[in-house]
Amino acid sequence: MDEKEFDRLAMHCRIRLSEAEKAGIRKEIDEVIRYFGIISEIECDSLQEAYHPIDIGQRTRPDRTEEYDDAQGLLRNTKTYRFYVVGPRV
């Protein structure tokens, strides 16, 4: 992975890296990606993807309103203004 491609990837991840971190991580990721190449040797193209290790059926919850005993608590971890969560500028 060249430097430009790595920078683009880090930008997509929205992670600011120092120059030292960038050099180290890029080298390590290159090494790991080369290692990932071993899966190309596995003959499994005719099989279904296993998104979960067992069949789980993916039940859904009934769509209904419920009382929640601590609705204010949901906002306790954030900075709020007039019951809105304050976030960065868009």
Binding site: I15, R16, T78, K79, V85, G87, R89, V90
Partner: peptide, 19 residues
């Protein structure tokens, strides 16, 4: 800003803020 660590510089645009 939503869970735990509060970066707090809300004047930054969101890409810079998140990064």
């Amino acid at each position: 800003f939503k869970y735990g660590y509060q970066y707090g510089r809300f004047t930054e645009y969101y890409n810079d803020f998140f990064s």
